[in-house]
Amino acid sequence: MDPQTEIELQAAAFRRLQKHLMQDRTDVQNIDMMNLAGFCRNCLSRWYQEAAADKGIEIGKTEAREHFYGMSMEEWKANHQTEASPEKQAEFKDAFARNVGTAD
């Protein structure tokens, strides 16, 4: 497979994942994703931001999240986020530290 086709396939797979998480499975909470898989929607938006930086393109955290979510974080939270139990919050703190590091 030529490199350009591979890039196009990877981009298509990413867009499918984004659609799945942002439209099809809005019921799945970020905290559950992080606790189970070690990443969440915010990680994906951060990776997008980091990829832009690698290309010399400055995108802020808020802008990267709005691009990935298709709306502001305030809108996402109001429409889709539920309250997490203290147990889930404690598990998240550990999962975040293991997978992301320190909060920015």
Rank of each mutant, 00 (worst) to 15 (best):
N30H: 04
S72I: 04
Q89V: 09
S85T: 15
L44T: 03
A37M: 13
L21Y: 06
E6R: 09
K93H: 09
Q89N: 12
D54V: 05
H67I: 05
K77C: 04
K93P: 08
A97V: 08
E91F: 06
E8T: 02
G60H: 11
A95L: 12
D94E: 15
A53H: 11
D54Q: 13
A84F: 08
I31D: 09
E63W: 10
Q4N: 03
I57D: 06
L21H: 05
M34E: 10
E74K: 09
M22E: 05
A95V: 14
I59W: 08
A78F: 05
N99R: 14
T5L: 09
Q18S: 00
N99K: 14
R65H: 12
A103R: 14
A37W: 09
S72D: 06
H20A: 06
F39S: 03
C40R: 00
D27Y: 05
K55Q: 14
C40G: 14
K61L: 03
G70H: 08
A78P: 12
M22Y: 00
A11S: 04
E63L: 06
A13C: 02
F92S: 11
E58T: 10
N30G: 04
T82S: 11
R16Y: 06
M34N: 13
G38F: 07
D104Q: 13
E6M: 05
R15K: 08
K19I: 01
F92A: 11
I59D: 02
I31H: 04
S45G: 05
D104S: 13
L44I: 13
F68I: 11
G60M: 05
